[in-house]
């Protein structure tokens, strides 16, 4: 019984951390003034945001039923492999399109 409560706390903790980081990433995407700064937002959302949510899901389903259920690892792995590639493609497209960059008021 005590075990189950602790696991519940763990699941809740990871869910909150994950959604908080996804939210911060989206706020960054909303606030930053130029494209290359906005590019840093999704990096947060993919790494810790989705990562923590998937860890929470793994923890929840592995302890709820019989046996280990870790197939969320596949999504984490795929996102970790694909996120740098899409960031690289986006940066290349932006350089080629010559998007406006933000100049600081000094």
């Amino acid at each position: 019984m005590l075990m189950a409560t602790w696991i519940e706390y763990g699941v809740a903790f990871f869910l909150l951390i994950g959604s908080a980081f996804a939210l911060v990433g989206s706020i960054g995407l909303h606030r930053f003034p130029d494209f290359f700064m906005r590019l840093h937002g999704p990096a947060k959302a993919t790494t810790l945001g989705v990562g923590c949510v998937l860890i929470a899901s793994m923890l929840y389903f592995s302890t709820k039923d019989e046996g280990l259920h870790v197939h969320e690892l596949l999504i984490t792995l795929f996102l970790m492999l694909s996120a740098p590639v899409s960031a690289y493609m986006l940066a290349k497209a932006a350089v080629q399109q010559q998007v406006k960059t933000f100049n600081r008021k000094d």
Binding site: S19, P42, A45, V50, V53, I75, L90, K100
Partner: peptide, 24 residues
Amino acid sequence: GPDAVDRILALDTLYINGLALLVV
């Protein structure tokens, strides 16, 4: 988003967040 690239970036973030929402 002022440029097309911004819109693609927004879509990219949108699907990642949507995926996480679905898992939750």
